[in-house]
């Protein structure tokens, strides 16, 4: 199982190296960046990770940087550090979605706990993203007619009503329905309904996720 990456952004080299040593001592992989720009420019490994960020960075504050990440849809959990933490700043950081806010100097255990919570959160998010991506791939194999049938079935309509709406025979609807169940890998109608919900399938058969 992957252990996760810790991305450390701090302009203070000594602090950066100390954190690097601390995370490696518990078996976490690290990446070091001297500035916010360096982090944004660097390629990020396709693995669960957590960002440890100093609130005071050259030219840009950590809080501004956090806003940048949100705007660029980089959804990595953030642990903020500050040498001069005040309450309004922490409140803003937590509202912006930071995992934790640690004032320097911090206890190593607090930092490690925050980072592993961050990595865990990232891992869960990635799992959800991945299953959503899988579902989208399966849905993409359906024919337009099958999508229409799936939308109607998961909306709770009976075969006879669907046949009337789509001007098909009831037998044809049953065949399409069986194909949908098979292609989507649904074990039951309830299973299919859950999939339709997470794909946000609309009555005309176009899923919101695909359209978006």
């Amino acid at each position: 199982m992957e252990t996760g990456f810790v991305h450390i952004v701090d302009d203070d080299e000594s602090m950066r190296l100390a954190l690097d040593s601390l995370f490696r001592s518990v078996g976490l992989a690290t990446r070091l960046y001297g500035s916010a720009r360096a982090f944004l420019d660097a390629p990020r490994p396709d693995e669960a990770g957590c960002l440890v960020l100093d609130v005071r960075l050259p030219g840009i504050s950590g809080l501004e940087f956090q806003a940048h990440l949100l705007a660029m849809d980089i959804r990595i959990p953030v642990v903020l550090m500050t040498g001069y933490g005040d309450i309004p700043m922490s409140v803003r950081a937590m509202k912006a979605g930071a995992i934790d806010f640690l004032s320097k100097p911090f206890r190593d255990q607090d930092m490690l706990d925050a980072v592993s919570a961050g990595i865990e959160k990232d891992r869960a998010r990635r799992a959800v993203d991945q299953s959503a991506a899988g579902l989208r791939a399966l849905y993409a194999t359906l024919t337009p007619r099958e999508r229409q049938v799936m939308a109607q079935v998961t909306a709770g309509r009976m075969n006879k009503q669907i046949a009337g709406d789509l001007q098909l025979s009831e037998i044809t609807v049953k065949i399409h329905r069986a194909a949908v169940m098979r292609k989507m890998g649904a074990r039951s109608l309830a299973d299919l309904v859950r999939m339709a919900e997470s794909l946000r399938v609309r009555p005309d058969g176009e899923p919101a996720l695909l359209a978006g």
Binding site: L22, S25, K104, D108, M111
Partner: peptide, 22 residues
């Protein structure tokens, strides 16, 4: 001034914690 003194202190604490863990 507090901030400037705090910076190396934080780094020292983190390095010492890492050293102990190693």
């Amino acid at each position: 001034i507090a901030h400037e003194v705090n910076q190396p202190l934080a780094s020292m604490v983190a390095s010492a914690s890492a050293g102990l863990r190693w």
